[in-house]
Amino acid sequence: MSEPDQRLFFLLQRAAHRLRTTADRRCLAAAGITTAQLGALFAVRDSPGLTQQELARTLGLRESGVTPLVGRLATAGLLTKRPHPREHRAVVLELSEAGVAALAAAQPEIDRFNAELRALLGEEGFTSTAGAMDRLAHWEL
């Protein structure tokens, strides 16, 4: 039997692509939103009153990348934007009722997806992989 592939970066990219495309397809079917949109909605839900700049930091993106994402979510009626009370150039983001409903519609699919990953990796493998991914996501290079 051959050794497992040791090109970790390549494997991470390949796995991330596979997981993202599968999860996007499922979330679009369940709630009409992509995983990128889902991540933004979760961040706003978890920190009501978030600014776009704070959302960009939370998602690990540039603000220029978050602006169109927020625009699409606002146009779809999933987020509301209002002027920041103290910063004249900033806007405050909050979930709309439709945004809350989209998260609720996506949750069963998220739970199913995680259950499939737990079955594939085993509970210990799932937990250790999640921990490793969290450490990599917060690694200071």
Rank of each mutant, 00 (worst) to 15 (best):
R135S: 11
L59P: 01
F113L: 13
A16G: 08
F126P: 00
Q52S: 12
E140T: 15
G77F: 04
L55K: 04
R135Q: 12
L136T: 04
Q6C: 11
P4H: 05
G71C: 03
T80V: 10
A31M: 05
L8E: 01
A31Q: 04
A105Y: 03
P4S: 09
R89E: 12
A105Q: 10
L28F: 07
S2M: 10
L103Q: 01
L41S: 06
L59S: 05
L73N: 02
T21W: 00
L19R: 09
T35P: 04
D111K: 07
P68W: 02
S96H: 01
D24E: 06
A104T: 11
R18K: 11
E3M: 12
G99F: 05
H84F: 02
H88L: 05
L95M: 04
P48Q: 08
Q107Y: 07
D134P: 01
L79S: 07
T58E: 12
A56K: 06
T21F: 03
V70R: 00
E54T: 12
L12M: 15
L95H: 02
E94Q: 13
M1H: 12
E94F: 07
A56R: 05
L93V: 02
H84D: 10
T58N: 06
A36K: 12
R82Q: 14
T75L: 13
G77R: 02
E97L: 13
E54M: 14
G60Y: 02
T34A: 14
C27H: 11
T129A: 15
A76S: 13
A130Y: 00
A90M: 01
P83H: 07
L55P: 00
A56P: 01
G65K: 08
H138P: 01
E140F: 09
A102W: 00
F42S: 14
T129M: 13
A101F: 04
D5R: 09
L41Q: 06
T80H: 09
R82H: 05
A56W: 02
T35E: 10
Q107N: 08
L121Q: 01
L12K: 09
D5V: 08
R7I: 05
E3T: 08
T127Y: 04
Q13R: 06
T21Q: 06
E87A: 15
E109W: 03
P85K: 02
M133D: 01
G39Q: 10
T75Q: 12
A74T: 14
L141H: 12
W139I: 14
T75D: 13
A101M: 08
T67F: 01
A56G: 06
G65W: 01
M133T: 09
D46N: 14
I33S: 08
M133G: 09
L78Q: 04
R26F: 03
E97C: 09
S96N: 01
E97A: 15
G39H: 09
P108F: 02
F126I: 01
T22Y: 00
R72H: 08
T127G: 10
P108D: 07
L28Y: 03
A29F: 02
A102D: 04
A23I: 12
A56V: 10
A29L: 12
H84W: 00
S96W: 00
R135M: 11
R62M: 11
P4I: 03
A137G: 08
A29G: 07
A43K: 05
D46P: 05
E140R: 15
H84K: 03
S128T: 15
L136P: 00
Q52C: 06
